[in-house]
Design a protein around this nucleic acid. Structure first.
Lengths: 159, 159
DNA sequence: ATGTATGCAAACCATTTGCAATGAC
DNA sequence: GTCATTGCAAATGGTTTGCATACAT
């Protein structure tokens, strides 16, 4: 499925959502959705704010970004992640394969890997709950940091 | 395995860690570890701070709590979670079965369920990375909130 | 015309940082 | 005695809130 098609589809879904919930259809909201779906991968509020100004030369206040993001999450077009205590990260929900997040607990770097596909029968076992998405976070130490750790331990031993 | 035994074992591991890393063995650090392993379930800095004063009548500053928690996470005795944007939550790593977290994106309530056992062969596929633990977060809407959503939508339609 | 949405600035609050006093080694 | 650790208070920074203005309906 090409990106053009996804963008149209997603926009349609958003319009539906706004209409149903009696929210206004503003240029800002469309611009934000479009911009998010013009790139893949993670972003945070800051990078979104900056890239919208630079790439799309569309200036939106941070308040509006937060505001709109809440709507987009609510209608399932954007997924929000919270890796460690840093700023929240977001990513578009469609046109992004489901993937796990491999997070280094030392340096915070986030790597993605194909999802081990939690079987849908397993998900169905969850009662009294409507699943909208799931995230697998695998924490550990990346090769760079584990090297740093070894170095540090060696220094400790010598002291 | 009874709790007494776990506490001893965990304390031993902590002592080892402190020694290896040339960190000092302070009363505060032991008190915090002991207190954490005297309860199950999630806690955050605030609840820990309060419960330590009330239950253990041991007063530790918040700085020390943060400080010590970092050590405990580093040596794998405590696991840190970040559900939504609220305060970080923690839980003891041993004597707690591995479980998933089912999180309501509306009200933020966190429910636990038995883990679907990510197979260890799948974990081994991750290269250049030392896995220390993983968390599965399943986001969606709990029954209470999905009821509230339906009500709201009905009101919207009528307007 | 009405009231939601935007944008700014100020407030919020968990966490971090700086620093003097304490105490483990 | 030395230097890591503690505890306090102040700073930080992402996010939220309050409010006047703009604009979708």
């Amino acid at each position: 499925m090409d990106n053009e098609k996804i963008r149209d589809q997603v926009r349609e879904e958003f319009v539906e959502y706004l209409t149903l919930h009696k929210h206004r259809k503003t240029a800002e909201r469309y611009a934000i959705l479009d911009h998010i779906y013009s790139t893949k991968g993670h972003f945070n509020m800051d990078s979104l704010y900056n890239s919208m100004m630079e790439e799309a030369s569309f200036r939106v206040s941070r308040s509006t970004l937060y505001n709109t993001m809440e709507l987009l999450i609510d209608c399932g077009l954007v997924v929000k992640h919270q890796f460690g205590a840093n700023a929240s990260q977001y990513e578009r929900a469609y046109g992004n394969e489901n993937h796990d997040h491999i997070i280094c607990i030392d340096c915070g770097v986030v790597r993605e890997s194909r999802s081990p596909l939690l079987s849908s029968t397993q998900l169905k076992k969850i009662t009294k709950f409507t699943v909208s998405y799931y995230s697998m976070y695998i924490y550990g130490v990346c090769s760079k940091c584990s090297h740093a750790r070894r170095m540090k331990l060696n220094r400790m031993r010598k002291k």
